[in-house]
Computed example of a mutant assay.
Amino acid sequence: MQLTRFTDLGLRVLMYLTHRDRDALVTIAEIAEQFAVPHNHLIKVVNRLGKLGWVHTLRGRSGGLRLAVVPAELTIGRVLRELEGSTELIDCAEPPCALRADCRLKAALDQGLRAFYVAMDAFTLASVVDAPTGDTIITLHRQYLALHR
């Protein structure tokens, strides 16, 4: 199983916005540069995070992004469920599988996926940005500000 690029970026954005060591809002341009991702793709990711209520966005010259949730209350499992949008690893109906009626593979995969999400529910946004990750995020942000002032 591999997460989509969209989910990967969504997680990175949330992690980057978690630390409060900021005077100003974070821009999409900053995040795009930090993670070497296309600006336009990041806009789509941030838009989705905003619709989910996890990121607050302000438009305009002095606009930017801010985390809109308490990091300790948002589980990684929830983020993955929302951004991945799929609760199945395989679809036996399309195209129809000849083994579908008697196959045990789908049940095994479904059980494994449920276990994965349960395991990810044990982690919060706050826990995944503990040191050293959080320290690195702060350093990246400070370096960006120093280069772009």
Score class of each variant (00 low, 15 high):
C97M: 01
D110N: 14
G10V: 08
L25V: 09
P71H: 05
V37T: 15
C103M: 09
L17V: 10
L17G: 07
L52E: 03
L145M: 09
L109W: 05
K106M: 03
G53P: 01
R20A: 10
G53K: 01
E84H: 09
L140R: 14
V13W: 02
A126T: 10
E94K: 11
R61A: 05
E88K: 14
A131W: 12
K51Y: 03
P38T: 06
D130F: 09
D91P: 04
H39M: 03
G50H: 06
F35G: 04
D23G: 12
V46C: 00
R149A: 13
N40A: 15
A68H: 14
T27F: 03
G10Y: 00
V69T: 08
A119H: 14
L125E: 11
L58P: 00
E33N: 12
L83C: 11
S86I: 12
R48V: 07
L49C: 00
A131M: 11
C92L: 09
T139P: 02
I31G: 04
L147E: 15
R81L: 02
V79W: 00
H148V: 09
A131L: 13
R66T: 14
I28A: 04
I137R: 04
A108S: 13
F123H: 15
V129D: 12
L58Y: 08
R114E: 15
N40P: 08
A72V: 11
L65P: 07
V70E: 15
A29I: 06
D21I: 05
L145Q: 14
P95R: 05
T139I: 05
I90F: 00
L65C: 09
V70C: 09
V45K: 01
L89R: 11
A115R: 14
G50F: 02
T133K: 09
Q2F: 13
P95C: 02
I90M: 01
T139V: 03
T27G: 04
I138Q: 05
T87M: 05
T87N: 12
L42D: 01
G85Q: 04
T18Q: 00
H39D: 10
R114W: 09
Q34L: 13
Y144N: 04
G77R: 03
L89S: 08
L83W: 01
L147Y: 07
T139F: 01
F123P: 08
P95Q: 02
H19M: 08
V55G: 00
P96N: 06
I90E: 02
R12M: 10
G60M: 02
D23F: 02
L65Q: 04
V79H: 00
K44V: 05
D23C: 01
R114P: 06
Q111C: 06
R61E: 12
H19W: 06
A108K: 12
L83D: 03
N47R: 15
R48L: 01
L9N: 14
T87D: 14
D130A: 15
V37W: 08
T136H: 01
R114L: 14
T4P: 03
L3S: 12
L67V: 13
V79Q: 00
I138Y: 00
R66P: 03
V26M: 09
Y117K: 06
A93G: 04
I43M: 13
I76P: 00
L105S: 05
D130H: 14
S86Q: 14
D135H: 07
G85I: 10
E33T: 15
N40I: 13
L147R: 15
D110I: 09
T136S: 04
I31P: 08
H39I: 10
V128Q: 10
I43Q: 04
I43W: 02
A107L: 11
P96Q: 08
R104P: 06
R20E: 13
K51F: 03
